[in-house]
Lab assay of single mutants.
Amino acid sequence: KLETFPLDVLVNTAAEDLPRGVDPSRKENHLSDEDFKAVFGMTRSAFANLPLWKQQNLKKEKGLF
């Protein structure tokens, strides 16, 4: 399991300012399950079932792209 970080560490943070080991294209993977659901309004599995373009739009909207 990946290390999780608080939302404010990941949202609207440039790649070079992210904690070590965080993939800038997969910031959402480093949210706790609770934060993930609070941000996206759905579970990880529901998010994973969305088309890629919709996932990317949601990530942009939430500052996690």
Rank of each mutant, 00 (worst) to 15 (best):
F47M: 00
L58A: 03
G21P: 06
L64S: 04
P19K: 05
L31N: 01
R20S: 15
E16Y: 05
L50N: 00
K59Y: 04
F36K: 06
E61F: 00
E3R: 11
R20F: 12
L58C: 02
E34K: 14
Q55I: 01
K54M: 12
S32M: 04
D33E: 14
T13N: 12
A38E: 12
E3C: 08
K59R: 11
N57K: 14
V39G: 01
A48Y: 11
L7Q: 09
K59D: 02
T43N: 12
L52Q: 11
N29D: 07
V22T: 04
G63E: 06
D23S: 04
A46V: 13
S45I: 10
K1A: 04
V39F: 06
V22M: 04
L50G: 00
P6C: 06
L7M: 11
G21E: 09
T13W: 10
K59F: 01
A14H: 12
K37P: 06
K54H: 08
E34A: 13
G63W: 03
A46S: 11
K54Q: 11
D23M: 02
F40M: 06
R20M: 12
D8P: 06
A14Q: 15
K59W: 03
H30C: 03
G41N: 07
F65T: 09
L18C: 09
G21D: 09
A14L: 12
E3P: 15
P51R: 00
A14W: 13
N29P: 02
D8C: 04
A38D: 12
H30F: 10
K54Y: 08
G63N: 05
E28L: 03
R44P: 07
R26Y: 13
V39P: 00
A14V: 08
A48T: 12
T43H: 12
T13G: 05
L31Q: 01
F5V: 13
K27A: 08
A14C: 11
R44C: 01
K60D: 07
F36T: 01
A14M: 11
D23I: 09
K1W: 03
S32Q: 07
E16N: 11
K54V: 10
K27P: 15
F36Y: 04
T4C: 02
V22C: 06
K62C: 12
A38F: 12
K27G: 06
A48H: 13
G63R: 05
V39T: 13
A14F: 02
N12Y: 03
T13S: 13
L18K: 05
N12S: 07
A15G: 08
L7D: 10
G63I: 01
L7K: 09
K54R: 13
L7A: 07
P24D: 10
S45N: 13
V11G: 06
N12D: 12
K37S: 11
P6G: 12
A15K: 11
G41A: 09
K59Q: 05
A46R: 07
D35A: 03
P24M: 05
K37Y: 10
L52V: 14
E3T: 15
D23Y: 05
S45L: 12
L58G: 00
S25G: 13
P6S: 15
V9R: 11
